[in-house]
Nucleic acid binder design. Structure first.
Lengths: 169, 169
DNA sequence: TGGTACATGTAACATGTTACATGATTAG
DNA sequence: CTAATCATGTAACATGTTACATGTACCA
């Protein structure tokens, strides 16, 4: 339980780099597909962390490729740091739902407006769910735990849709 | 859909202040109980926003009370701003789940460690769920939409627990 | 080969978190 | 009356977001 001083996003990058050297762009794309919506990572975060991790000796910069994209490879120290992070205590979950926040104040808006609010949101999440199901189909080769995270995302979206239906009716 | 320039946290505070003047401490406590885990608000955020909102004329500072706590009351302009925010487009949801992130890498840890990881997390969420159910019982007087947000929190926790069970088995 | 679209990287900003300083209430 | 505790507020920091500058690849 030694503190590695890694934040979760940095750790996530180290984790992805176990598969081989990647550039910032690669990592953004990979994180998007691997973590989906429950751990988003923006480009700016990635580009901030990479030099930082390299400075600590967890990554080693390679030869710039096309468009002068800078690839990074994980080092032995990086692997150790990642392994340490895996055993650190998991932090709390964080949710931030503008929809739920508005719902808390929904008594202050008109029924008409409430209807469009929920209808719009429903459409968004229908689409998200469809995309996730698509992903699940394509994930047959992936390992069990990658699929598990997808499963969770799907479960969540379904629960949210059901909730929207019962609440808006 | 005019942009009020309000961030959601500021808006949430304005919403709570519709019930009457409150101090920073009051607001933190109220937000905790009203929004629960899907829109957390820390003391520091509150204390940063209050003078800011007062500066814009949305709040009016009252006479300091005990422990020199500063109460704020919402103004007519504040109510207008809040009403405007209610009709602005709701942003995307944000999830941040350290558990899910670790799960994505769970193939890299031992089965033993995985067991404790899930068991610990299960205990935490069991407790959360119990607390929520308690809250639901006590919320009989509350308005329909306050209960709806609670309902969602409960649904979420149940779904998470089910997911933990199927994934860790 | 000119220009459009796109990917990389940066930098300014907004938000969220942690740790601290201060003073008031309460318990002994 | 003194000490311990607790609530208020602040300030430094970490993280996340948005908007921009730059240069490279692609296409007409």
């Amino acid at each position: 339980m030694a503190d590695t001083g890694l934040n979760s996003t940095a750790a996530a990058l180290l984790g992805l780099l176990h598969e081989g050297p990647k550039t910032g762009g690669d990592l953004v794309a990979e994180a998007q597909s691997r973590f989906g919506s429950f751990w988003t990572v923006t480009r700016s975060q990635v580009y901030r962390e990479l030099p930082e991790l390299a400075g600590r000796g967890y990554l080693k910069a390679g030869k710039p490729g096309t468009r002068s994209a800078q690839p990074y490879a994980i080092t032995a120290a990086g692997r150790r740091a990642f392994a340490g992070w895996l055993t650190e205590s998991v932090g709390r979950e964080h949710h931030r739902s503008p929809l739920l926040l508005r719902t808390a104040f929904a008594g202050r808006i008109t029924a008409e407006h409430r209807r469009t609010l929920f209808a719009d949101e429903r459409a968004v999440h229908e689409q998200t769910l469809a995309a996730l199901r698509e992903q699940l189909k394509e994930s047959k080769g992936a390992d069990r735990f990658s699929r598990a995270t997808l499963d969770f995302a799907i479960t969540y979206e379904r629960a949210l849709l059901r909730w929207i239906d019962t609440t808006s009716s």
